[in-house]
Design a protein around this nucleic acid. Sequence first.
DNA 1: AACTAATCCAACCGCTTTTGG
DNA 2: GCCAAAAGCGGTTGGATTAGT
Length: 335
Amino acid sequence: MGRHSCCYKQKLRKGLWSPDEDEKLLNHITRHGHGCWSSVPKLAGLQRCGKSCRLRWINYLRPDLKRGAFSPEEENLIVELHSVLGNRWSQIAARLPGRTDNEIKNLWNSSIKKKLKQRGIDPNTHKPISEVEKDKPTRSSNDHNKSPSSSAATNHDFFLEKPSDFSDYFGLQKLNFNSNLSLCTMVPEPFSPGNMVGSAFQAPVCVKPSISLPQDNSSSSVSGGPNWEFQTNNTFDNGGFSWSIPSSSVVKPNHNFEEIKWSEYLNTPFFNGSTVQSQNSQQIFIKSEADYLGKVSNVTDPWSQSQNENPATPEASDVFSKDLQRMAVSFGQSL
DNA sequence: AACTAATCCAACCGCTTTTGG
DNA sequence: GCCAAAAGCGGTTGGATTAGT
């Protein structure tokens, strides 16, 4: 194994990327795809290692990145997902369209952690700090960070076995599904320059189950059972691209979270993507994170299929102008 | 205006996992 | 099955920016 070979190479640029470098990389990938990342810098005329190019593309240049501030809905979703997945940022990012693992990780470390602590919630265990204090002799709160894959199950079993208490432990109010967060869950076609340039993307399957994030000191109560509204107008236009979404795949749940059985929760597009599952699924309490992850492992992970992504969601209006400019450059369009 | 502290975030580092010969 | 390269991932760092004094 050892270190990546690029680390040994000298004369490679490091640090912030210049606009010129960005343009070279963007143009190269737009025209040829990235192929083998280690060959990208050479082909694109960059004095960077392939790893650096890959990161720059994933975290900044990808045309489908959302950018801009995180919405309360997104923040809450991150908290929810973190309570189940731990520090698996890439898996969390896979469920937030247009967001990168790096971005989410930064948000978590700089903002969300702090907010949870202020509310008396331990960000590692998602339990009340007082409770964590009691547990200290037997369980380290750092376990979570150090080894999410091994320790998260322990920490998160707590939630998984007690779904009805689930949201209470975030110091957040119960979720409801009335707002507008979109979750892209499936991207049917691989990314390729061919399907980017001058043609319509195959849209991801997007769902809109969002949770309206409980604001501080507010409580949400939403009436209504698990009624899913299917959107019919799923074609949207963004910067000259036409993306259409199969109507059967886009749902706008109208759900009172309190009434959702845990199994339903897991079966919603909120977690599993694609389409709405049965409304009468059996109630299953998952006993371990491994079990949980097994259940959702069939989920298509759109953002981890890095080449499969599709640009943005209908809410992508907050794409920065510079990104639009880049897209315009790439795709030969004027914005 | 100048300085310091706090915050944010892009990028790097190093480890693990996956892939292909 | 073994090995090396590539890819993926999470933790950390350092520079830029913002807020406070």
